[in-house]
């Protein structure tokens, strides 16, 4: 398949692009699932029984991975927007590193928040 070439990077820059595509696709699929799931709000009992399954320690790691996808997609997205508006191309490597560091920090914080509450 030719689309596999999207995921064969030659540098860190297009590795970031590959992940942006991948996380974007995952998040879009999750959006559909999410809306379908929330449709059960019309029936409180079904909703409560489903939420009992998904909001549980077993599901937390998955949830945390999803949040990682979201954080990466958002922060990397900001980086891409800066470049797409024509700025900071000369500093693209530094920007990429900053973006990666911020992603990890935000993800650790978000995961901590999630574990605190459950």
């Amino acid at each position: 398949m030719r689309i596999m070439k999207w995921f064969k990077p030659v540098s860190l820059q297009d590795l970031a692009f590959a992940f942006q595509r991948l996380t974007g696709f995952i998040l879009a699929m999750y959006l559909i699932l999410h809306l379908a799931f929330l449709s059960t709000l019309s029936d409180p009992l079904t909703y409560e029984s489903l939420i009992a399954i998904t909001v549980s320690p077993t599901f937390l790691p998955l949830d945390s991975l999803l949040v990682l996808c979201g954080i990466y997609h958002g922060l990397n997205g900001i980086r891409v927007i800066i470049h797409e508006l024509g700025y900071l191309h000369e500093h693209r490597k530094a920007l990429l590193v900053i973006c990666a560091i911020l992603t990890v920090i935000a993800w650790l914080y978000a995961t901590w928040v999630m574990y605190e509450v459950v």
Binding site: V10, S11, D14, F17, A18, V80, E84, H89
Partner: peptide, 15 residues
Amino acid sequence: HSAMACSEVCPKKIE
């Protein structure tokens, strides 16, 4: 979509 692989490999470094 700004993968920017081109800028990384251009032998003339013209971004």
